[in-house]
């Protein structure tokens, strides 16, 4: 038997296969990053050119032609609607996930909920907007509550399924440890399972919030959009950043288009800041290593 180390050196063919595969993966990663890079580049470049303090603090002017002004109306609308939608969908979604993973398991009701939340994840958001429009906007009129409702419906299945996956990852040993100490089922879920899954659940919630903050179609049908700065929850239309970006981008006047770029940058920064904040909070709530 040949026991020399170099006798097991890979053949030239295997070396080349390895190199080609590695190069192929590098190219694939680069290709995948190109669109992301371009989006970030153009939004930052054009957005910064149009960004100013006034943009952040002033409402949108009455004509696209007029330069200056900003998206304050949209910023407030987005903040209100995303906050309301989060407040509604996150607790509900986490509770549903706890039911699915800890109580319902493979029962028919749990399977049904799982099936429909999967379907809901795939439903185009404009359908959600149409549903809220016909069910609530027609009788009660456009408003922040309607927009928030549509966003909550979009967020809910994302929160449910991501939270369920995270709860699934909590090791059985931890639950057993808790039960062996005389903890009841609810104590185990609230004090062991949920805290252990919290960092992961936070990630899922962030995903849902980012998705809701960028939704446009359902808001056209529920919040409508407005040039007025308002905090009314019901009774009058309200604007949102994606709505103003959409309006600004599709008009022929340079001033309106510039504001759309700045609005895109504002929305991007908002999502980024929110993500970072939530990550920091999640990391803080975990105990120091």
């Amino acid at each position: 038997m040949n026991l020399e180390i170099n006798s097991s050196r890979p053949s030239a063919r295997r070396l080349w296969t390895n190199r080609v595969a590695t190069a192929g993966m590098a190219v694939a990663v680069a290709l995948a990053l190109i669109p992301v890079g371009l989006i970030l580049y153009y939004i930052t470049k054009n957005g910064l050119a149009a960004m100013s303090w006034g943009f952040l603090t002033e409402p949108t002017p009455f004509t696209f032609r007029r330069p200056g002004g900003g998206f304050l109306n949209g910023l407030i609308g987005t903040a209100i609607m995303v906050a309301l939608a989060t407040a509604a969908s996150v607790p509900l979604g986490i509770l549903a996930a706890i039911y699915l993973e800890e109580y319902g398991k493979r029962g028919w009701l749990a399977q049904l909920v799982r099936f429909f939340s999967d379907v809901m994840t795939g439903v185009p958001s404009v359908f959600v907007g149409l549903f809220v429009y016909t069910a609530f906007v027609l009788p009660f009129g456009f408003g922040a509550i309607m927009g928030a409702g549509a966003l909550a419906i979009i967020m809910l299945p994302i929160v449910i399924r991501s939270a369920e996956e995270m709860l699934k990852l909590v090791p059985l040993e931890l639950k057993h440890a808790s039960f062996a100490l005389g903890a009841s089922k609810s104590q185990t879920v609230l004090r062991v399972v949920l805290p252990s899954a919290l960092p992961g659940i936070t990630t899922g919630v962030l995903l849902a919030v980012a998705r809701a903050a960028g939704e446009t179609a359902p808001l056209i049908l529920t919040a409508l959009g407005s040039l007025k700065v308002t905090t009314a929850l019901i009774g009058e239309p309200i604007s949102a950043l994606p709505l103003l970006i959409f309006d600004g981008a599709r008009n022929p006047f340079a001033a309106g288009q510039e504001r759309a770029w700045a609005g895109a940058l504002e929305l991007l920064a908002l999502v980024l800041i929110f993500t970072l904040l939530a990550r920091i909070v999640a990391a803080r709530s975990k105990i120091s290593r």
Partner: peptide, 14 residues
């Protein structure tokens, strides 16, 4: 199978 909590909270859990 300690809980992913502090040493103190592990003992205090029960």
């Amino acid at each position: 199978n300690p809980f992913p909590k502090s040493v103190y909270d592990n003992i205090a859990f029960g």
